[in-house]
Simulated scan of single mutants.
Amino acid sequence: MADKDALLIIDYTNDFVDDQGSLTAGKPAQKLDQSIVDLAEKFKDDNQFVIFPTDVHKKDDPYSPETKLYPTHNVRGTWGRQLYGNVGKWFNKNQDLDNVWQMDKTRYSAFAGTDLDLRLRERNVKTLHLVGVCTDICVLHTAIAGYNLDYNLVIHQSGVATFSDLGQKFAMDHFKNVLGAKIVD
C-alpha cells in the first residue's frame, strides 16, 4: 500500500471562528474558510484523507481542565460546535465518503484519548497536513503529538489562525524550528 497523507482540519467550529462564537479567534480565523475548503477538495480528489478532529465538551464539566480556563464552548449538539461556514458546507456534502470523517476530541491534541493514531496507521498515513484553530493551542498540541508518533508534519500557514499575533508567531516558529515541520502557504 502506498504512503498516504491526511489533512487534519482542527476545531474549525462556530464557537472558535464565528463573530458570535463563545471563544472566537474572529476575523483571522474566518479568512481561512475558502483556503481550507480548497485544500479539503484537493485531498478528497487525490484520494487522501480529510479528518475533522473537533473539540467537544459538556457544559460546566467538572472533569475537563478547560472548564476552569475558558468560557463554555463546543458543547455537543449546539450551534457553537457546528463546523463554520463553507468548511461546514463542504463537510456536510462529503461526510459519507470513506476518506472524510469527523471525530470527537476532548483535549487540545487530536491524539489524546482518541483512536486517531490507529486509524491513520491502518490507512498507511505518514504525513499530516494541519490547518484550523487555534494555531498555538490545539493545532500546536496535535503537531507535537504527531511529531512524537513519527509523522511528517506540514503546516499550511494560510490555513491556521489564533487569538494573537504573538501566539501565531510562537507556534509557527515552534513548528519549524522544534518539530521540523514543513511550512507552506
Rank of each mutant, 00 (worst) to 15 (best):
M103G: 02
D117R: 08
A6Q: 05
K182Y: 00
D173P: 05
V131S: 09
I155Q: 03
K4Y: 02
K68T: 12
N47I: 00
M1N: 09
F163A: 09
D165R: 07
M172K: 15
C134P: 03
L32M: 11
K93N: 11
L118A: 14
L120I: 02
A2Q: 14
V154H: 03
G146L: 11
A2K: 15
D46C: 03
D55K: 01
C134Q: 15
L39H: 03
H141F: 14
S64T: 04
A29L: 05
L39F: 02
Q20P: 00
L166H: 13
G167D: 14
A29Q: 08
A29I: 06
Y151N: 10
G77T: 01
Q95Y: 12
Q168N: 13
D45E: 10
W90I: 14
K27I: 14
T13W: 06
A29G: 06
L130E: 04
K126C: 13
V125I: 12
L7N: 04
D60N: 14
L23G: 00
V56S: 10
N124P: 01
Y108I: 00
G85T: 07
D11P: 12
L69D: 13
R123I: 01
D33A: 10
K58G: 09
G146R: 10
V178H: 13
L153T: 11
R121A: 03
L83M: 08
K27E: 15
Q30V: 05
R76Q: 08
R76V: 07
S158C: 10
L179Y: 04
G180T: 04
K93E: 15
D15L: 01
D185E: 12
L8K: 02
I137H: 08
S64W: 02
A171P: 05
K59G: 01
F170P: 09
D5I: 05
S35E: 08
W90D: 14
L83I: 05
V184R: 04
K27L: 14
N99E: 03
L32C: 06
N86F: 10
T162Q: 08
L120R: 05
D3M: 13
V87P: 07
Y12C: 10
T106N: 02
R119V: 07
Y70F: 15
R76T: 02
S158T: 11
N177S: 14
G77I: 00
G159C: 03
L153E: 06
I10G: 02
L23R: 00
V87M: 09
H73S: 03
R81A: 11
R123H: 03
A181T: 01
T67H: 04
T54Q: 09
D5R: 13
V133H: 06
